[in-house]
């Protein structure tokens, strides 16, 4: 008894404080280690790419090798920009989104409505498998389907089909998860007013989960906008601004690859990467903002 009281009275707070300190600093160091790559990447891109980041960069198409070589040899910045890449990326991503968003949202809602059904389970596993398919394989498939048989040539459409397949599983799962978060009481409120079920989906569930759906869609877009491998096999690339979906088209990640292969264009690699990185980062921040607003539920 006496021993127990003594034990209880023993002052080991200094030991506990020390333990607390050690863990605190351990966590601080680990956090810094974790975020340092992103800081270093952005820092490098800004330092290396800033020089090329001017008005022409966004309004002119890529220069040819000779122009670039002349500029580099005289120590000037490389003329021209990546307008053909920006417009091409937009064209391909918009096309892919137009195909993937309605399809993905519809399938996601189907999965939510039929949680326990075997067919829904199958679709869900297929979506999971699809998410793991290497993007270059999707490029090959799109090459076989579209480039060979539909547009009979490299085209923006072929690129967007492969990107659409990449977006689908992301949108399907995020839609299903968003729908699951909406309380059933909201659905019941609509049903108790005698509203037909399809109208509840369209006018109650989708608006209520809108921020969740948007978050999923934006993250899917930021995921595909940097894809290079499937585009090499499908859109090929183009030195001019192309808005025809049946013609070869450039894209920002494709341009980065082309600049990498051309010793005279090295400086453009960094500015293009900076642009791409900034774009993806912005999309991510916007989707985070929207997600934070979903507290309405």
């Amino acid at each position: 008894m006496k021993a127990q009281i003594e034990l209880a009275n023993q002052d080991n707070s200094s030991y506990r404080k020390l333990k607390d300190r050690i863990f605190f600093w351990f966590i601080v160091v680990m956090s810094v280690v974790t975020i340092s790559p992103i800081v270093m990447i952005i820092g490098k891109l800004v330092v290396k790419g800033f020089r090329q980041f001017n008005f022409n960069f966004f309004t002119q198409t890529t220069p040819d090798t000779f122009e670039a070589m002349m500029a580099v040899s005289q120590g000037e910045i490389i003329p021209g920009g990546i307008l053909n890449g920006i417009t091409g990326s937009l064209l391909v991503v918009v096309l892919a989104s137009v195909m993937a968003i309605p399809l993905g949202v519809i399938i996601g809602i189907y999965l939510y409505e039929n949680q326990a059904k075997r067919y829904a389970g199958l679709i869900r596993s297929i979506a999971d498998v699809l998410q793991g398919v290497p993007s270059i394989v999707l490029g090959l498939i799109s090459y076989l389907w579209i480039v060979k048989h539909v547009t009979t040539g490299f085209s923006a459409l072929a690129g967007s089909v492969s990107l659409c397949i990449m977006m689908l599983p992301l949108i399907i799962r995020s839609t299903e998860e968003t729908m699951k978060m909406i309380p059933t009481s909201i659905k019941e409120a609509g049903l108790a007013l005698g509203v037909p079920y399809y109208k509840i989906i369209l006018r109650v569930l989708i608006p209520t989960g809108f921020s969740g759906l948007m978050t999923g869609i934006l993250l899917a877009i930021s995921r595909i906008i940097g894809e290079t491998a499937p585009l090499m096999l499908t859109t090929l690339g183009s030195p001019v601004v192309n808005m025809n979906i049946a013609k070869p088209t450039s894209a920002v990640p494709l341009l980065i690859w082309e600049f990498y292969n051309d010793p005279n264009m090295v400086d453009l690699i960094w500015s293009s990467s900076l642009f791409l990185m900034g774009f993806v980062l912005t999309l991510n921040i916007i989707s985070k903002r929207i997600a934070a607003k979903r507290r309405t539920i």
Binding site: P183, S185, E188, A189, G190, T208, F210, T296
Partner: peptide, 15 residues
């Protein structure tokens, strides 16, 4: 529409 219903938890449409 003839027989309305109110639930356990208040459930106004959040949007």
């Amino acid at each position: 529409r003839k027989i309305g219903m109110v639930f356990q938890r208040p459930n106004p449409f959040p949007t």
